[in-house]
Design a protein around this nucleic acid. Structure first.
Lengths: 247, 247
DNA sequence: GGTTTCATCTAACATTCATTAAGCCAACTC
DNA sequence: GAGTTGGCTTAATGAATGTTAGATGAAACC
């Protein structure tokens, strides 16, 4: 009780999109003690190699998991992007050491939750525990889809797939609608995500624009032909597990 | 009690490599009711799109997660390989629908565990639950490393990385030693894993052989220069979270 | 107004990888 | 032993992507 304008609301929506929460579960989530933090673009939220004793939920903006490359310290690969509602590094609860950093992409705001509280949930709230587990398993499903996209799609289609996914995820928690969204993502960062050179990303962006599939002004994206974009990307959202079911 | 030659032994070793198991946890694992099954090469163990009510542990051989491609039914991408000790599709416990198939690679043997039993563990064995959770989170870490490898390594180094990983995982559960192992994996299957054409995989295999890094006869692989192979692949096993720690 | 900075964009050339086609070799069949 | 199959191997060509270099344009600074 208290905490009426629950900080965890986005994450609650993320869960309710996929299962139903008991009053008890909801209550527990809404009374989680959290600590707010804001970050400037590029700032490190959680450093690689650390063993954090808390995990963070995305509130506003974007964050990414960044893997530094051994032997090429100024080079990196981004293996995940996180939008509001994501429990970004929940997996750190059961890992000995983080194998990557969490960084802010554009200005970002997060809420930290102590692992003592999460561990307590695993002791007393089995259904809620399975839902938290689900959140990490869903991240893995997204990783797999990125692997599929990387292996089977060419640059334009690959970029198209990423845009379809981000819009669908934003839309699922009510953070975007009408095929428009804010994406403060540089082409150089896109290159680290897609595994191309920045120049090649530029070719792909131009291609999607030339085909009349998207409009991209500054950080504002409009998907002008959703059907066409999903077709090119062979996008099928079922991996996002958006069905409600009992877990 | 009973079940002395526990079927779950490989998985127990997998967990004990990373945390300690209480007598109670051990007992619960060893009394899991399981159902044995054998598969011929290529056979489907769990089909994509299903909502299985059980999950399987790898006992012998290899299995893979295979993603069929929409619009190209004879094409696929393999996003994970599983060795003995892996709880292959444990994630299905908290997913509504599987986004991929589990298939046998070479002849394979698995043990199925009902989800009712696993759910019961989440109700009464919180520490063991966190260890099961860890197993799925570790799969995700491997997915991420595959993404990093795909984006940052060229064919030979990419193949080298896969070989380093498989050997390390086999070795971690005592299923391989002295840089030798059995790998019943066709070059065409390697192509589906690495995202190359079979012809290009062949070039990569030859390259590693020509450099004197590996010997590959039939399904028997010997890593003749471990140091050189890990250097080429920039292989750092820390993502496999092989440290023992309290979770 | 000029300068700097930084992201986006473009062009020219180099490398990596896919595709097609075909040869090789061992295991198996008739 | 001839034929067949399946996996491995090689070569030649073209498409996709990387690299290097530099142009453009907008915002921030002085």
């Amino acid at each position: 009780m208290g905490n009426e304008l629950a900080i965890t609301e986005y994450f609650v929506r993320y869960l309710q999109r996929r299962d139903s929460l008991s009053t008890k579960d909801l209550e527990r989530l809404r009374t989680l003690k959290t600590e707010h933090a804001s970050y400037a673009p590029g700032e490190v939220i959680v450093p690689a190699g650390s063993s954090p004793d808390r995990s963070c939920m995305m509130l506003r903006g974007l964050s990414a998991r960044s893997h530094p490359l051994v032997g090429r310290p100024d080079d990196r690969v981004i293996t995940a992007l996180h939008v509001p509602g994501d429990f970004v590094d929940l997996h750190a609860l059961v890992m000995a050491k983080l194998d990557h950093s969490i960084i802010a992409v554009g200005p970002a705001e997060v809420e930290f939750v102590d692992h003592t509280e999460l561990t307590e949930i695993t002791e007393n709230f089995p259904h809620l525990t399975r839902l938290l587990w689900m959140a990490t398993v869903l991240d893995a499903a997204i990783h797999r889809q990125w692997l599929v996209a990387a292996a089977s799609l060419r640059s334009s289609a690959h970029l198209a797939h990423l845009l379809c996914e981000i819009y669908t995820r934003l839309n699922a928690v009510g953070a975007a609608s009408e095929h428009q969204f804010h994406l403060p993502l540089l082409q150089r960062e896109l290159a680290d995500i897609l595994g191309y050179s920045p120049i090649h990303v530029n070719r792909a962006v131009r291609d999607l624009r030339d085909r009349g599939l998207i409009r991209w002004l500054g950080a504002e994206i409009t998907i002008t032909d959703w059907k066409g974009l999903t077709l090119l990307a062979r996008f099928d959202p079922s991996y996002l597990d958006l069905e409600r079911s009992r877990r």
